[in-house]
Design a binder for these strands. Structure first.
Ligand SMILES: [Mn+2]
Ligand SMILES: [Mn+2]
Ligand SMILES: [Zn+2]
Ligand SMILES: [Zn+2]
Lengths: 128, 128
DNA sequence: TCTTAATTAAGAATTTTTCTCAAGTCAAGA
DNA sequence: TCTTGACTTGAGAAAAATTCTTAATTAAGA
């Protein structure tokens, strides 16, 4: 475990914001001003391959990373772009329903949401 | 409605494969050899903004497009990469569960799967 | 038919991510 | 202590996907 990897992991675990690689790069740079973006990508890749962090490819074209590896969903606000964790119970009997519907065996699934955060919801109400 | 847009739409609707922009470009090129890739991107963007087709950003960093705009899920085979439609019933009471869990109002959700297609499943069994 | 607003092809540019490579680090063994 | 080898780094080049720019063409309506 190199110092760079340690700092990257530490900062990601501290954040609740699901940062992109370059957002995290900007944060890590405050502690390691000489670090390169490629090192951040390299270590995020390694850490997620090792199961120590999660790579999220649910929102658009840019990867996001999550220091919380527990199984959970995410919701993104369509107004302000904020991303929040959503902890809901696993869906019952989904594997069998999928087999019945298309013949594929389910290994994993992602349930992700689009919506309005409490703040943007309030703004909408006030505007109407 | 230009001829290019018509052909792009027609070919996408014909396909059941959820092609990427450049896969569709290769197909459309057979009918319109002078078309450019940017035209394909531009029209896919327009058609999906108009709600005539769907843009799928569920798998990795490359967009895929679907001529079928009915609400349905997808499953991707982790072995061969094939993508299939999955028609399952909407999840009951999910909006309330999400509000309770994080305070966001749900506008839409995506439930997508990773798994093994029947062919790759069979291969696995034979290998063991 | 004439006008104009939209669209095109081609290639340049952008954005995000990965790759290459020479140099640096460090632990184990001679 | 010196050498070796495995691993990692920073820097920049390269790759992959998508969007933008431009002058020319086309569609659609008066
Ligand atoms: Mn999370
Ligand atoms: Mn589909
Ligand atoms: Zn919001
Ligand atoms: Zn397969």
């Amino acid at each position: 475990m190199t110092h760079q990897r340690e700092v990257i992991l530490e900062e990601l675990k501290r954040l609740r914001t699901h940062p992109t690689a370059d957002e995290l790069y900007e944060i890590v740079k405050k502690r390691l001003p000489r670090i390169s973006l490629a090192t951040v990508y390299r270590n995020l890749e390694q850490l997620s391959a090792a199961g120590i962090i999660q790579k999220l490819d649910f929102v658009g074209r840019q990867m996001r990373y999550d220091g919380d590896i527990s199984k959970h969903s995410h919701i993104r606000c369509v107004e302000c772009g904020s991303v929040a964790d959503v902890r809901i119970n696993p869906i019952q009997g989904i594997d069998q329903a999928v087999i019945d519907a298309c013949g594929y065996k389910v290994l994993d699934y992602h349930l992700d949401f689009l919506g309005l955060c409490p703040i943007c919801l309030l703004k909408k109400h006030r505007d109407n």
